[in-house]
Amino acid sequence: MAAGVLSIRQLTVWYGARRAVDQLDLELPAGHILALLGPNGSGKSTTMAAVAGHGVRGTGTVRVDGVSEDDSPAEYRRKIGYVPQDLAIYEELSAFNNLMFFGRIQGIHGHKLRERVADALDFVHLTHQADRCPSTFSGGMKRRLNLACALIHQPCLMLLDEPTVGLDIASRDAIFDVLRRLRRQGVAVVLATHHLDEAQALCDRVAILREGRLAMEGTLDDLTRQYRSRTGYFTGEQAPTVLEEIMRTSMVSDNSTRIPPPSARRAEAA
């Protein structure tokens, strides 16, 4: 694999006595999209927070384009575009002014800033809505603006925390389209999600976290091959218990689940 834009080595983050992330190693080259999958509490958000520089410190190293936060915090952060799950925009400011503000905060000013704002609006297809306030936008438009605010300084690594929550299929496809174009431009993207179908549709690589550890990592084809060879058959009394355990610890969200929980099936039968 080529030298990664994102390079995580032996990252360990403690919350009290609990290891939220445990000796995590990850490498992501330019122009790739990595899906970070895992159930709640698996360490996805902590990993994102540690990479984004949200004051979550641990042992190990995180380098973005060869720079660590300890070397040069400002330069490190300029290389990252962070899109939180919540909308991180000001609803009462126009789309243009939102981008201008977040651009200034990134240290871009003057003519260059205006150019970048125009480019970002164009990139997410909001050029004609530049003077409107996000309070009048649809959910999909708000998400696209949310994404544009993280692109304004042209980072080489994008961190997206469930960027399609609550969106319809058309709006989700619009976000995917933006991410694919970012990939073509050589930006590395980390996408934290619960949805396997998103990972399948968009990502080159998948990393599955479980209890802070990297359970598996590779391309989707690799993982599919790996799982196909581990298909198990359960019969008799043990089957419901095993299924319940699988679903309890699964990273698969409810709407992706094909099999209803055994308890629901029992209730339905009764």
Binding site: P84, A88, F102, G107, L159
Partner: peptide, 13 residues
């Protein structure tokens, strides 16, 4: 408590 602050926190400011 929201996303804006986390975005600002991940900026060089």
């Amino acid at each position: 408590a929201g996303g804006v602050w986390r975005r600002l926190a991940s900026s060089p400011a």
